[in-house]
Each structure stands twice: as C-alpha cells, then as structure tokens.
C-alpha cells in the first residue's frame, strides 16, 4: 500500500512546520530522517490522521486519511509519546487493541503480537512497572495486532537498550521484506542507515532529499568530498595534489592521505595523472565520508545557510 502526500504544507500560526512536501511511501522500510524540529512528527501525524494538512492532500491508496477512521484497518501507529494506560497489563493493553479492531479471535492475535516483540514474559505486569523499552515494545505489539499493511513508527528506538534495539530493527526489516509499508522517523543516522532502504530527509520543514542515501550522496557534487588515498609514496603524492586548485586540503598520517576535493570532477580526472607524473603508485582510493552522517550534515548545512 502507498501513502501519498501531494504538496502538503502545515503551519501553526506563523510557523511553517512542513513546507510543500510531495512524497510517496511504498512497500519496504522507509526512514524519515531529520534533526529535531524538522517537522518529522508533524508529517507523521498527518500520515496517521491526527493532523489536517493546511494545504495539499494526504491519501492512503487514494483514500483521504484525514477524518477517515476506516484507514486504521490498514494502518498501525506507534506514537512517540510514552504514555500508555499504566493501570493495564501488557496483555490487557494489546488485547484491548485487538478487540477495538474487532478481530475474529482477539486472544490469538494479541498472543501472536506479544510474541513478535518478545514480551510474553512480562505480559501480566502492569504497564506502569515497565521500563521505557518494554513500553515501546508493547506499543509496537498493539500496533501490529491487526497485521496492518502500513506501519508508522515515531522515533521507535528511543529509550531501548542496544539488544532491544537490534531486535526491533530486525523485526522492522522482516516486516518490510514481507512487503509491508513501513515508515519510521528518527534523528539517529545509524538506525536509519541500518534498517531503511529508502530515506526521506526533512530539514526545516522541507523535503530535502529522497531515495537511496548513496545515490543522494552522489548527486551532491558541489560539496567537498573526502577521500582516503594509500600509495607507494604518500608524501610525494600529497605535495603534487596540493599544488592543484581542486584539492582543498591534504593531510598526511600513518594511515595514509586524506584529501578534501573541492571540485569533484576535476579531482577524479586529476588524481591518476598527478600520480603517474610523480611516479607514485596508488594502491587504494576510497571515499571517507560516504556514510549517512556526512550526507546528512551536508544537507543540514546547505539548507540553513
């Protein structure tokens, strides 16, 4: 199932939280990435039917999401706020979710969902005695109880310990591989990088980038690239490279050379020639900052400039 946003904006008074965003979230795992205050929650709330777009439309398979409670048959929502009914046990909470969905056999569905998040052991304790990570897992179980085609998670990994985090990541990956549409928001790059095939980057309310993050990185040719070079004579190569305007900075260490290329295209053209002319053999050339973090900090610095 696809969630489609078409030219969606949302403002609160004079503050624009989401600005003219058009995106389609399809099957698989999508990460919604952005710094705090970028409008991730606002966007997610509009996809979940808890907020009306000020302009534009948000639809699920062509059906409008706002003021349409039928969409919850296909959507599971894990809200960010920790609050759940503390006086219910985990079992009662997930069971109530199954009953509210009018599932044919709510007990079986609840047991299955609790097993999926490995919460069978603590299911008979009241939720107020749970740790943050356990609450998060129970919320995930309640959202999964009706096996929704679409799962929306707002900062799902917050407050989980590393083992629980890995477990939930695996679960999300599995569900995505099974063809469900999964969207989760996060400001932690490592999480997104690890789970999501597709990222949507939101910066200051604007849809800054979308797609596979390596692909996004490749498109950003107007920024300095950092390369690691190992060669037969690093010092000599460094001297030769810095002489050209395409290198911004070159640093030399025991691990090799780090070159900041200001002009990407010229640098890739230049390096082999410079090495040949200097009589240096290049053993290894690798991009040093191809991870999501550097992509992200680039996007942020560009839009706030």
């Amino acid at each position: 199932m696809n969630i489609e946003l078409t030219q969606v904006s949302r403002w609160y008074g004079n503050v624009v939280a989401v600005n003219d965003v058009t995106m389609t979230i399809g099957p698989g795992v999508t990460g919604l990435l952005g710094p705090n205050g970028a409008g991730k929650s606002t966007l997610l709330h509009m996809m979940a039917g808890f907020l009306a777009p000020s302009t534009g439309t948000a639809t699920l398979e062509g059906r409008p999401i706002w003021r349409n409670h039928q969409i919850y048959r296909s959507i599971g929502l894990v809200p960010e706020r920790e609050a759940v009914y503390g006086f219910l046990t985990g079992w009662q909470f997930v069971l109530s979710s199954a009953r509210l969905h009018r599932l044919p056999s709510p007990e079986d569905a609840a047991a299955k969902a609790l097993a999926m998040v490995e919460m069978e052991g603590a299911k008979d304790r009241r939720i107020e005695t749970y740790s943050k990570g356990m609450r998060q897992r129970v919320k995930v179980a309640a959202a999964l109880v009706h096996e929704p085609q679409v799962l929306l998670l707002d900062e799902p990994f917050n407050g989980m310990d590393p083992r629980q985090r890995l477990h939930l990541m695996d679960l999300v990956t599995e569900l995505g591989a099974a063809g469900r549409t999964i969207l989760f928001s996060s400001h932690i790059l490592e999480e997104v990088e690890r789970v999501a095939q597709q990222i949507e980057v939101l910066v200051a309310g604007r849809h800054a980038a979308s797609g596979d993050f390596r692909e996004i990185r490749r498109r950003m040719t107007d920024r300095p690239h950092l390369f690691r070079v190992r060669s037969s004579d690093d010092r000599r190569l460094a001297a030769a490279l810095i002489a050209d305007a395409s290198s911004g900075a070159v640093s030399l260490s025991e691990a090799g050379l780090e070159v900041q290329a200001v002009d990407f295209r010229r640098f890739t053209w230049l390096l082999p020639r410079v090495a040949r002319d200097a009589g240096v053999t290049v053993w290894q050339l690798s991009p040093a900052d191809e991870d999501l973090e550097s992509v992200f900090s680039y996007l942020i610095s560009r839009s706030t400039r």
């Binding site: 979940a48 039917g49 808890f50 409670h69 039928q70 969409i71 919850y72 048959r73 959507i75 929502l77 809200p79 706020r81 609050a83 759940v84 009914y85 909470f93 109530s96 979710s97 509210l100 969905h101 009018r102 309640a142 959202a143």
Partner: peptide, 15 residues
C-alpha cells in the same frame, strides 16, 4: 492531556 487517547483514536471506531 497525556496522549493515551491515541490508543483509542487510532482504531477503526468512529470518533
């Protein structure tokens, strides 16, 4: 106030 109402509102039940 504390957001627990989301549990009821995110279900296919008319408000």
């Amino acid at each position: 106030d504390d957001g627990t109402i989301m549990h009821l509102l995110s279900k296919p039940i008319s408000r």
